[in-house]
């Protein structure tokens, strides 16, 4: 009897592993595989014309953070890389902030509509999201160009005399990313707000809470998971954005994605590109760990 149970248990165990195999294979080869190759490449020597030579080297990692001056050979922080890192983080944070400011009222508006109207409003949020990223970016560019819609309108009604130079500035990158990633903020926020128990808000008003304290003490804590999820969903792709900074920044303000592309393309320094990619990944990981910790605490609090 005992023996039989053990055999059954063993068989179940084996079946479980067999059933898991396809998923594991995909995870190992499709997800970790390329990542491992990137990691390995970051420790190799750059090939003369792209590619890598199979010689161990830590040059790439050294060059991520430090540089030897081309001319007097002094060692210093890699000023160019660090300022691009900083710009990426700064612009991504500003984009996230902008998405919260615009996305929160939008999601609240939709969640407070009658149930049969909500789908319509959500559809309006989703439609631009179905359009190709490049096309959406070029559409925004057409709006803010010197001879574009916004400037022409402002000049016609006489608010400004000369066109505002918005395109090819950091502001343009933020506007572009904000437009592109806003749905990623609205969707999770809307999901939390839809479940919001509005009788709690009524109760708050009944107890003489002001509008501000209802927002701060009741709504915000309840939709916080959605807010954090939305922020992560906007922050992470902004950090690695490639197309938007390329088109809206006019190639003058590189972000991390563009710097990495430069190393794999014209720079012909694949190990440095690989090391920069892993660095980007590390920044994303830190952001996600932060999320897990905050979200975990929230989950515990609410049971």
């Amino acid at each position: 009897m005992n023996n039989l149970a053990r055999i059954r248990e063993r068989r179940e165990n084996r079946n479980r592993w067999l059933l898991l195999t396809p998923a594991l294979v995909i995870l190992i080869f499709a997800a970790s595989g390329p990542l491992l190759i990137t990691l390995v490449y970051s420790f190799l020597t750059a090939g003369d014309y792209g590619g890598v030579k199979w010689e161990f080297s830590t040059d790439a990692w050294f060059n991520v953070f430090f540089q030897r001056d081309i001319f007097d050979d002094t060692l210093s922080f890699a000023d160019a890389h660090l300022s691009i890192f900083w710009r990426s983080v700064k612009l991504s944070l500003l984009t996230t902030l902008g998405a919260v400011v615009l996305g929160f009222p939008t999601a609240y508006f939709i969640a407070t509509r009658p149930k049969h109207h909500r789908d319509f409003w959500m559809l309006l949020i989703m439609i631009p999201f179905w359009t190709n990223l490049l096309i959406r970016t070029f559409a925004v560019m057409e709006l803010i160009r010197n001879e574009g819609t916004l400037n022409t309108f402002l000049m016609t009604i006489g608010v400004i005399d000369a066109p505002l130079q918005i395109l090819f500035t950091e502001t343009a990158i933020i506007i572009g990313m904000l437009y592109v990633y806003l749905p990623l903020m609205v969707l999770p926020l809307y999901a939390s707000m839809e479940r919001l128990d509005f009788s709690l808000i009524e109760a708050g008003y009944d107890l003489y809470a002001s509008r501000v304290s209802v927002l701060r003490r009741i709504i915000l804590p309840l939709v916080k998971p959605g807010l954090i999820a939305g922020s992560i969903l906007v922050f992470v792709p902004s950090l690695g954005a490639y197309v938007t900074p390329r088109v809206m920044g006019g190639g003058k303000q590189l972000m991390l994605g563009n710097l990495i592309e430069l190393q794999f393309g014209q720079g012909r320094n694949w190990p440095l590109g690989a090391a920069l990619s892993i660095t980007l990944l590390a920044i994303v990981m830190v952001a996600l760990l932060f999320y897990v910790r905050v979200a975990g605490r929230e989950g515990g609090g609410h049971g």
């Binding site: 750059a46 003369d48 014309y49 081309i70 300022s83 691009i84 590189l254 430069l262």
Partner: peptide
């Protein structure tokens, strides 16, 4: 040559930072 190209890339990155 690769060693010259490397310096060019460095200047180029500094230009685009």
């Amino acid at each position: 040559p690769p060693e010259v190209s490397k310096i060019y890339t460095q200047i180029w990155t500094e230009l685009q930072k």
